[in-house]
Amino acid sequence: MDVSELVTRLGLIVIGGEKGLDREITGGYTSDLLSDVMGHARSGSVWITLQTHKNVMAIASLKELSAIVLVKGYQPEADMLVQSNIEGIPVLGTEEEAFEISGKIYKHLNG
């Protein structure tokens, strides 16, 4: 499944990084600890988090993640959004909490 399909299926908001909507999603990782993601997320994953600063994009880029999903209506800080567009890694938004959206993404990836 690519990012745009996940967006459609779950009604996510595309906040930035539109040119990466065709990136393939092969898994997911839910965490707000950056070293946890750095150490354990697999490339191709969508990262579910409430962290909204620029370093999120640095990690997403270094780990070759597919997209970021910001939970609970959180908005990226301005420099995170800029970096999302530069890297072409989409930042997506949802009003849902991490547990709920992670469960839905899991179901769509494994269903």
């Binding site: 600890l33 950056l34 750095m38 150490g39 370093n55």
Partner: peptide, 15 residues
């Protein structure tokens, strides 16, 4: 910011 969880050196060691 989500840093400082005490995992950094362990990540370095593993990698």
């Amino acid at each position: 910011m989500g840093f400082g969880a005490g995992m950094g050196l362990s990540n370095m060691n593993t990698n």
